[in-house]
Write a protein that binds this DNA or RNA. Structure first.
Lengths: 393, 393
DNA sequence: GATACTTTTTAAAAAAAATAAAAAGTTTTC
DNA sequence: GAAAACTTTTTATTTTTTTTAAAAAGTATC
């Protein structure tokens, strides 16, 4: 009964409020079918009617929404150094503040236990009953095997898959996804309209990630490794990359590369407001660039130009509707835009750039957290319904 | 009645012989539905039962095929210099020989009229009644707007679209497609099994074309320009490309580039069996390379290495199941393979190449012609059925 | 060589979509 | 400014398609 209507729940979740007609279009099913389904969900107290919407001519449609506290999702967004956790209700609203935990992913045998402790703490401190949580969505860097539930790069679990281990410890279903893929999911569902059909989502972070939306769907390639933008062999700089090769794009264009360049510059006597910090972090550089520090702006623009070079290649191959700058680094979106556009124009077939819009995400630093939620929603059909959204028998 | 069963006709065309169960899987419809459909098509004398197939245990299935002379398709495969035309029946068999016509596409105001004359000649000489032809499928280089039916690069028609003009002159429906896309279509339908789901089809010809198969479907991008592999900005050689930029991949790796390099080498005193030709053509180079000429092999290997460099980028981004070398140049497939594989290994993240198979097409020089046929079959639903496969009323 | 297991085909029931009609608004027009 | 014409949503009915079940026709095994 409940499982049959998962697509309606997804449609309502992503649109927040929808009419029967909207849902018929979203699900691709007939209006009578949707009408019956919504009636069922209202009987189960999962959906409620929220009002009548204006019409451009014709009868005004009734609109429906999910009931916000029917269930909650725990979204866990990890990067190399920081883990952020938030609780989200069925109206896609954050419940309480985003909580941050310093947690080093690489070279840290204890990472998985720290992670579980953080998750438990957030669940307990929320004051919400455990059975109100639908599932946990964890998003993080690395080669993720979402099917088996393992991260091939970080967080090895003892003698079972990462997902089953955390699920057992936390007492909740767990789904995992790669951080860049998660950000692409978030942009697809909650971002700009031009990001929905054919879009390249760039994750500006400690690497330069790429999530691809092709024909409205996330594309991960034959074995799940598509979108390795960060390791495109574009430079002959001899710099060794974490992947083992030399000259990868990320050796010149990631936040890590920017940090290194800043440190190098300051050591050689660069004048900059960055000098006031003991050790210069990416966050410092972002802050000072926003305040107008010339040196900070220059090294960001340099990295942006290299990203633009890579994007020119992407443009030739994929001819996307849009390229969206998202992830941690996108909060200084405007600083990236013009050098990227410049590089793209220089390196593309004439006029090819006119078919693709370059834009900064409107999701800010929340993209990855929303991607974790989306990962759960997309996997809703795998949950045993009785365990969570209870169905009157 | 007929239109409803187009998907069954497509399934039978591509598989040549199929059981009801095969067709149910192919069309995604239930067996009762397929059973009724095939019965309908048999009444219309479009399909016949061709026998009973062996079974791996259980009742032997009846198998069905299209009746070969129900209709014919004219496939026209053009390149910069040569146009090849063949008639194909409903069992995907060539009827008569492939006919070749020298026809220059670029800088030739008369090209469209020459083309129409060639088509008319083939139709008349076939001795088949005009109304037995379903449609004409024309495949050629250039930016093709398959929706409107225009080639933005070559063959401008006076005051209407290219498709409507040729259709009017030839008295038959016309569909057009880009040559590399057509080759990808042919590989998808008639090529190796590994080319069906996620495959990059390389068209080794006067340029280096790319047709992408993503999630079992041809991907053309947001505005139809995806797959511009030939113009990836990978070289700093200063060589001007036909696209207006410098250093495109095709300036080093296409048959045109190979011709130029051969001429250059011979002028500077290279020892080679190529010296016996007045002007060296790509066909000569291919021939002599096959016979073992060291110089010919060397320049082909050089070009192949550059293609491999480009493919490394493709591999990082798309993580395909396979890369298929197809098109005119694939007849010397084995000469390309090892330098391409070498370059891919050198420029890819370790192990990434192990997930992708590199293979030479089994369709030889027929890929583009088969692509023209496929273009027609894929557009079958647009035809007025009564005009061609006649339906008893 | 009878029994157990597969696969295909046919028949009956259930589900979903397409169609048609009704209801409820908007906009146009005289 | 009210009636006609047009839109859009909702409800009811019919048709199409799928699902389920059963039968038919083989193959493999002990």
């Amino acid at each position: 009964m409940f499982l049959k209507h998962i697509d309606l729940i997804k449609g309502l979740y992503y649109s927040k409020t929808a009419s029967l007609n909207d849902l018929s279009i979203y699900t691709g099913r007939s209006i009578p079918y949707v009408t019956k389904g919504i009636a069922d969900l209202m009987k189960l107290d999962i959906v409620k009617e929220v009002g009548i919407r204006a019409s451009s001519g014709g009868r005004k449609p009734a609109t429906y929404s999910l009931i916000a506290d029917t269930g909650f999702i725990l979204s866990v967004a990890m990067n190399q150094f920081l883990t952020r956790i938030v609780i989200v209700n069925m109206n896609n609203e954050f419940v309480g503040e985003v909580q941050e935990f310093e947690l080093k992913l690489g070279d840290n045998k204890d990472a998985i236990h720290s992670l579980i402790a953080c998750i438990k703490a957030v669940v307990v401190n929320s004051g919400l009953p455990q059975d109100k949580f639908l599932a946990i969505g964890i998003t993080m860097p690395g080669f993720i095997d979402a099917f088996l539930g393992n991260n091939l790069s970080f967080l090895k679990a003892p003698e079972e898959t990462l997902v089953t281990y955390i699920a057992k410890q936390a007492g909740l279903p767990v789904f995992i996804e790669n951080d860049s893929t998660a950000i692409a999911l978030a942009e697809q569902k909650f971002g700009l309209p031009i990001a929905r059909n054919n879009s390249m989502i760039i994750n500006l972070g400690w690497g330069v990630g790429l999530g691809m939306i092709i024909n409205k769907e996330i594309f991960k390639g034959h074995s799940g490794f598509a979108g390795e933008f960060s390791h495109l062999p574009l430079h002959k700089n001899g710099k060794l990359c974490s992947c083992g090769k030399q000259g990868c794009l990320e050796t010149e264009a990631s936040l890590l590369a920017i940090e290194a360049k800043a440190a190098e510059g300051l050591k050689h006597g660069q004048v900059s407001s960055l000098l006031k910090y003991d050790t210069v972090s990416a966050d410092n550089i972002i802050d000072e660039a926003l305040k107008g520090d010339a040196f900070a702006i220059k090294i960001i623009a340099e990295a942006a130009y290299f990203i633009g070079q890579g994007l020119a290649i992407l443009l030739h191959l994929m001819n996307p509707e849009s390229i969206i700058l998202s992830g941690k680094g996108s909060v200084i979106g405007k600083l990236w835009l013009s050098p990227i556009q410049q590089a793209m124009n220089e390196h593309c077939i004439p006029h090819l750039t006119t078919y693709t819009q370059l834009a900064v995400s409107n999701l800010g630093n929340n993209a990855q957290l929303l991607g974790g939620v989306t990962t759960v929603i997309e996997n809703l059909y795998k949950l045993n319904p009785q365990a969570n959204i209870s169905e009157p028998t």
